[in-house]
Simulated assay, not measured.
Amino acid sequence: MVRRSGRRPGNQDTKQAILAAARTVFADRGFDKASIRAIATQAEVDPALVHHYFGTKEKLFLACMDLPINPAELIPQAIEGPRESAGERLVRLVLSVWDSPHGSVAVAMLRSAMSNEWTARLMREFVVTQILRRAIAGLGIDAKEAPMRTALVATQIAGMAVVRYVLKVEPVASAPAEHLVAAVGPSVQRYLTGDLPDVFATWPDEPGGG
Rank of each mutant, 00 (worst) to 15 (best):
R124C: 05
G138R: 04
G87Y: 06
P76S: 10
P101M: 01
R121M: 05
V127T: 04
S100Q: 02
D142W: 10
R111N: 14
C64H: 07
S115P: 03
G140E: 04
K144G: 14
F54A: 11
E84R: 14
G87W: 04
V105I: 11
K144F: 15
T56K: 08
L60I: 05
N116K: 02
A113R: 07
A86W: 06
G55P: 04
E80K: 08
I79G: 04
R92I: 05
L93F: 05
D142E: 09
L49E: 10
W98N: 09
S115W: 07
D99W: 08
C64G: 09
E88A: 14
L67K: 05
V50Y: 09
L74V: 03
G87H: 02
D99F: 09
L132Y: 01
I141D: 03
N116H: 06
P76W: 02
E117I: 10
R89V: 05
Y53L: 09
A63L: 10
L139D: 02
V107P: 08
N116P: 07
A137K: 11
S85C: 01
V127I: 06
A108K: 12
G87R: 02
P71F: 02
R124S: 07
A63Y: 11
F126A: 10
P68F: 06
G81L: 02
R83S: 11
I75K: 03
R134I: 00
I141V: 01
G81P: 01
N70D: 15
D46A: 08
W118L: 13
G103L: 00
Q130I: 03
F54Y: 15
W98T: 14
R124H: 02
S100G: 11
S96T: 08
L95E: 06
R92C: 04
L62G: 07
G138L: 01
S85T: 09
S100I: 02
L95D: 07
E80D: 13
G140T: 07
K59G: 06
I136P: 04
S100A: 08
T129F: 13
A143F: 09
A108R: 13
R133G: 08
F126G: 09
L49Y: 11
S96K: 03
